[in-house]
Structure formats: C-alpha cells, structure tokens
Nucleic acid binder design. Structure first.
Lengths: 158, 158
DNA sequence: GATGAAAGATGTATAAT
DNA sequence: ATTATACATCTTTCATC
C-alpha cells in the first residue's frame, strides 16, 4: 500500500465506475498497471466492493431510523448480530460500547413498515429493548473520507 | 420507473462496476437500452453516484463513532449542518427527531483524533452538547436493501 | 512492478423501427 | 422505448524491460 494505491482508492471512492484508463491518466500510470494494482487491492480485501448509491425515496424507502438495541444479560451478541443480518431492512449494523449493544440503521417505505420492523427486532432472541430515533432528513451519507490523505503514512500491511 | 429500472438499480447496487452489456444479459435487454435507462436514472437523480467501498482500517481509519449533537435553542440547524459538512471526518449526517438535532458518523485513525474531532464539533456555533457512542465493530454497512423489490409498486414519479 | 502492443469486449452516438 | 450499426475506447493478456 503506497501512495499510488491510496490515490487509486481515493479516485475509486469518488467515482466507482472510473475506467482503468481514466485512473491511469489521472495518476500518471498505464492502464495495465492500474488494472493490476486494483486487482490486488480487491484480492487483499482493501477494496470490498463497488456500489451504486440511490436516492432512497425514489425507490420507495422514504423512512429511515436509527435503532439502539439493548441485549439481555444472557444474550450472545454473535447470535443477535446474525439475526439482525437476516432482516433486509437493516442496512447497517454497528456493535457499540455503552449500555446498548448494537446500533442499526433501517430503511423502510412507511412508518407502518417501521412498526413492523421494530416488532421483528424485538422478536429476536437476546434483544431486551430498542430505542428508535427517527431520521428527519439525511444530509449526507457514506461520504468519501479523505482525511487519511493528510494523515501520517503508517505501513500497516503488505 | 418500472420493474426493469428497479432490476437495473438492484444490480448496480450489488455491483456498481457492472458493464451495460453485463446488465443487459442479466435482465434480458440490449446494452444500448440499458445504457439509455441508466443515463436517465442518473439524470433524474435516482442514482446519485458510484463508490468503491474500502475496508476502513486498511486506509488508516480504524476508529468509528456515532455522535449525537444537541443544538442550542437559538441555533439554525441549517448552519449547523453546513458546518458539519465542512469536517471531512464526518462521513454521514442525519437530522433526527428527539432531543438531539443531529446524529453523525465519524471515522478517524485514533482515539486522539476522535478527541480532536469532538473538540471541532463543540466549537461549531449552535452546538450545545455531544454524546459519543464508540463503535466496537462494524458488522455490515450500507448493505443493498432489496426489501423494496417485495414492496407494492407505487408509481411515485416519472 | 511497469510498459506497450494486440485482440476482443464494451462504450457511446446516430439513425431507424 | 428498443434495436441496429459503427467507430472510438477500454479491458485483459502477454512478452518485455
């Protein structure tokens, strides 16, 4: 992972459909060199995927909520996490420090669906309580964080 | 927005680098038809972008936190949102209902950086108080939500 | 590791149905 | 809105440095 890899990653975070030729021009490398580097970044798990980002309300998912989940004392959080992963409306799932065990983000069509989802969450074994925060508007989300470009270069792996 | 568009969107959420030819084969359409549909989806703001997803710790961002932000009574939340957007370590920003005004997700390299970021947040005019929840592990994030495929088709726009 | 060449696949515009 | 055509561009492999 050198500076060139970092620049490729930054460019692909900005535009996941950038062609290898485009990337090569952008950073001064041949397309085949970019191709090989990107392949390695994918193979080593640095780049985990490429996704289109969609305006949620255009696909009929106008309701977003953040839900804190309290586990019971006896719960195995791995089991809870696995159960959460089974619910398609749970878009993100974070294991957190504090009195809650997880915070999840759910996206559904209507508040009725949200009610239904909350019922599903509480029916998971090991879930004691939920705390729901309704999202009024998403200002921005999953924005490419470029603060690592400024950070010290720490030769982690590779 | 018909069922074909929805299938294209679902495919591009799964794999944002899928070629038009690939998409066409997948859903039984010519590449040029797919090309035109995708162009319209982009132009009408249904698809807002394509991004590579990166393993955060591989790029030196191993610390994630969810931060609730209380505004002062006199604060203009638009100003607060604008200020939050200026901080590169703030990846996502939600305006929420409840006694907090915003919940943001930040990603930084170290807990020292987190402390620094919190200082920056509290220095924003209109921010009264912050509540930080440290993320221990991200189980999954920004997962393609396919529950709309099951949902009733509601001819919203187009 | 990077390059450049070459073959095949894909992207993109235009015109036609 | 889709298909057909056509040319430019890109992907991918491989010999080479």
């Amino acid at each position: 992972m050198d500076i060139v890899d970092r620049r490729i990653i930054a460019a692909l975070r900005e535009n996941g459909r950038a062609t290898y030729a485009e990337l090569g021009r952008q950073i001064g490398l041949s397309a085949s060199a970019v191709h090989e580097r990107v392949g390695k970044l994918e193979a080593t798990g640095v780049i985990t995927g490429y996704h289109a980002v969609v305006n949620p309300s255009s696909v009929g998912l106008g309701v977003t909520a953040l839900i804190g989940i309290h586990s019971t004392d006896v719960a195995d959080d791995e089991d809870v996490a696995a159960a959460l992963a089974q619910l398609p409306e749970v878009e993100s799932c974070y294991r957190v420090a504090g009195d809650e065990s997880f915070v999840v983000k759910v996206r559904v069509a209507t508040v009725d669906d949200l009610e239904h989802t909350l019922g599903g969450l509480r029916r998971i074994g090991g879930v004691a309580r939920t705390r729901t925060t309704l999202v009024l508007s998403t200002r921005f989300e999953g924005r490419p964080n470029t603060s690592e470009a400024d950070a010290e270069v720490n030769g982690d792996d590779e």
